[in-house]
Design a protein around this nucleic acid. Sequence first.
DNA 1: AACACAACTAATAATCATTCTAATTTAAAG
DNA 2: CTTTAAATTAGAATGATTATTAGTTGTGTT
Lengths: 133, 133
Amino acid sequence: MNNFTDLLRAHNLKATPQRLEIANTLYNQGHANVEELYDTLLKKFHSISLATIYKNINLMIENAFIQEVKIPNAKSVYELTKETHSHLVCKKCGNVEDITLDLRPVCDLAMHSTEFQIDKADLVFSGLCKKCQ
Amino acid sequence: MNNFTDLLRAHNLKATPQRLEIANTLYNQGHANVEELYDTLLKKFHSISLATIYKNINLMIENAFIQEVKIPNAKSVYELTKETHSHLVCKKCGNVEDITLDLRPVCDLAMHSTEFQIDKADLVFSGLCKKCQ
DNA sequence: AACACAACTAATAATCATTCTAATTTAAAG
DNA sequence: CTTTAAATTAGAATGATTATTAGTTGTGTT
């Protein structure tokens, strides 16, 4: 079990037990949506409020401690901030995996054929994971 | 002004005036969110219900007449279904543009380094459009 | 052109998701 | 150990979406 106290503080966030548990859940599960976070934290904090989940998710996003991942035909999931990467989503079981790809060539192509100044590329692959094929 | 009657019917959708107007709005504006569609249709149908907007958006998505585009830090927008393409979003003015890129190399890379069978890649670039830089 | 019917629209209520408010509790700095 | 600003909680309030129902309309058939 990881200790995220210092990492939270490095992001200007007080290390409350609820926040530590959110961090641990995302660390252990990789990705989780609002409902999953709430259900998981309920086990440890019998009287936690959904407002706490939302408030912390929003604050943690503002402070770049976590990030939102928008997924086609599904609720957003959240993950601890780490190196830039893309995602694979299984259409059957809903599982989300990370994948690191070099998208610079694609970004460069896009910047040359448009007048945009691009600083981020969110890429989500949809398909079937090994188990679901 | 385009006539989408036949195209709607080809997708098993009755060509009602409200649907024709949704199609025209998306054709003219490229992309629009729920609220923008509602506001636009209100001008022509003074007593249209938001439920009609939602019901039609959902049906049109089911029947592949339109598609949802999920955007970081913003509401989803909808667009007429056309050839597969990616999107550019301006973080300042919110404008959404299409861009056609060959993502097969990236998909192949992803399929080889994972056990996923990929059949779709949703890519959204974020940055500044020419006017906003 | 008129008919019949399934499908559609509009109003409203109901549900689900998210944010706000106010009172209480707590992390962490001194 | 105190102090204080910030966090948590419960519940109300708001916002977004879906369901229900009664009346209307598009469309294939005559």
